[in-house]
Design a protein around this nucleic acid. Structure first.
Lengths: 209, 209
DNA sequence: GTGGGCTTGTGAATGATTTCACAAGTTACA
DNA sequence: TGTAACTTGTGAAATCATTCACAAGCCCAC
């Protein structure tokens, strides 16, 4: 398959939300224009995005809400369950553990790890926090595929390496740190401070837009 | 000033981190190549990004770490303090309240709001959670400029409007919901579920890269 | 089954961003 | 002072992403 732009994948994920919302509202079909209206984009953009993966619509009618939902879930890899561990049981890790949005989409939290003795043994959302030294040992049993990394920036790199050794192939990093991942491990960043800085840039330079 | 791409602003924010790290390591000057190595980019990219705002370097030598830091802070609007309220005192709101990364950069939390009676009156990181109905009334006293919105998706739109009435000009939205902002209000999204979906897309389609 | 009204899918055009490549400026040092 | 080694700043070229525009296809009503 040709390489797909990240911006396209991101929009696909949004379209899926709108499709699920439309399904709840009882709609059977939806046009590219409707989908575009819900997100902040254009109908041409929607059709182009979908066209990279095939043609799912019916001319004159639009897209079947259920068929397109299913197809996008398939594209995004959401038709299977993903086994996720949380590394770092501080405030952010704890918030992630109970975040409904993950479970709803087939991301199953199978383990939570920390360093601090005070946190080890505590139960978060039904899962007992374990020492992060156990991560590699637990891997055979838990088979984690994705890690949510919520540790202080200085600890991030070490834990990426430990996660990789435990067989983890994808890391969503919440630490404000640049990390270097071993080959074959995909890393994405959720960087709240950085987003806030982009926001303050926008506010500071608002007039010139 | 010409319009600056978001990707450029995002990298600027990263460069600032690397500059601060370099300062801690005692470096006085840094070259575009060094900066590029720390982020995942190229020296030409670094120089091009900076060139939109002026020329800060010295040929043959590179950039002064302290002067460039100061200049980037200025561009991003970080030379002043920003007054921030958190809307939603659930797990995510609570995690945001104590997140060090914000305070370090001059974002001062001046208020926290929620709907749930059980949460109102509780103190989070030294700030008492108040009823979100008070947001507009408190505005004259607190003068909030930015809101961190951490409420359930269904409540997000209503609170955006309330925040706008309280004079807030920038919103960082953590709810997985598309929201429509009044004119003059800037909205950015931090969407963890969406990032996780992009990650599972990457893992599902890893071979074809 | 025919026509009108919609909507898709997609090449081509445009616009935006990144990379290239190199002249020009600076330092270090003999 | 002269030269070697670096590094910036920046047009031009290349690449990547979005928008345009329209032929082709389908539904529905009659």
């Amino acid at each position: 398959m040709k390489h797909i732009a990240e911006s396209t994948v991101r929009r696909l994920s949004l379209y899926l939300r709108f499709l699920e919302q439309s399904r709840r509202e009882g709609k059977d079909t939806i046009s590219s224009g409707d989908l575009a209206g819900l997100g902040g984009t254009t109908s041409a953009q929607v059709r182009k995005d979908l066209s990279f993966f095939g043609s799912f619509g019916t001319r004159g009618l639009g897209y079947s809400v259920s068929a397109l939902s299913r197809r996008i879930r398939e594209i995004l890899g959401l038709e299977r369950e993903w086994r996720v561990v949380i590394i770092g049981a501080g405030k952010i890790g704890a918030a992630l553990a109970q975040y409904r949005g993950f479970a709803d989409r087939g991301y199953r939290i199978v383990g939570i790890y920390d360093v601090a003795p005070a946190r080890i043994g505590v139960s978060l959302d039904g899962i007992t926090v374990r020492d992060q030294k156990e991560l590699e040992g637990d891997a055979a049993r838990l088979k984690p595929e994705i890690a949510l990394l919520a540790v202080p920036p200085t600890a991030a790199q070490t834990l990426v390496e430990r996660a990789a050794k435990a067989g983890i192939r994808g890391i969503l990093n919440f630490a404000p740190a640049q990390i270097h991942a071993p080959a074959g491990v995909e890393v994405r960043h959720v960087d709240m401070a950085l987003e806030l800085e982009i926001l303050s840039y926008a506010l500071t330079n608002a007039r010139k837009k």
